[in-house]
Amino acid sequence: MFTPAVVFNALELGCIYSLVALALFLSFRVLNIADLTTNGAFTLGCAVSATAAVAGHPFLGFFLAMAAGAAAGGITALLQTRMGVPSILAGIITDTGLYTVNLAVMGFSSNVSMLKTATAFTLLRDVMGEQSPYKLLLAGAVTLLACVLLIAFLGTRLGLSIRATGDNPDMVRASSINTAFTIMVGLCISNSLTALSGAVLAQYQRSADINLGNSMVVIGLASLIIGETILGTAHRSSIWLKAAAAVAGSVIYRFIIALALRAHVPAESLKLISAVIVALAIAAPALKAHYDFRRARAKAQAALEKAEGGRG
């Protein structure tokens, strides 16, 4: 069923997309904000990284993409903290504006091809050789570094303040931490991670496309929730475990997609499959609660009937 090539491919993509899951962990779980900037920020990362690689700076492209993503997150944060735009709408507004920005970054073309361009991946291949797992090494190293830095940051004074902002805004305001500032920093970091994911993906597949970021927020959330459900971290407090769950969920999600493709599911139907996976994953806790309640009720009813039968 799974050839080594398929396994490596799923691991590589899982690592790359796990940065989006980490970003959503920060915005959706830590800050409690559904940040729809994600789609546009992902494409922005692709566009910036591709344009930089074509210009001969593949590694610089990663950092430029992160800076661009942070700027996009900053605009969303500004809209919702300083201008009273509801958070979901703020993300949609930025996302809409980014469509034009992304086209502009790619020279008003809807795609950029890097088939003849040196990318971070081809540079590493030239050093390590064609047979080495250079793709997985690069993707894994970027993800690991991002994970470690994010976790270290969340233990600092600013990081703890950001976590408290999503956890108990009342307390944060009472202890006079500026929530507008902590939300701003949080969204800048999460969108720079999303953009980095797009940046690595563009160079990995040697092309950037204006539609690459479509439904990225749904895919990222699905990965995050799959990871949380399987590792059971929803009610744990260890930040390490939670970050690991985001990465694991992303890899598992890619294996599910690979499995679907191997089962000769037509590629056009993948969006529908993704949507079903997401809906089921997000609905899982509610469905489980409903099922548990029905089972408990049936059990109580059986006990009651037994007691009544005994009396009669």
Binding site: R163, D167, N168, D170, M171, S237
Partner: peptide
């Protein structure tokens, strides 16, 4: 509930 963050250790 006002003085502490419940999700943090």
């Amino acid at each position: 509930l006002r003085g502490t963050a419940p999700g943090m250790t």
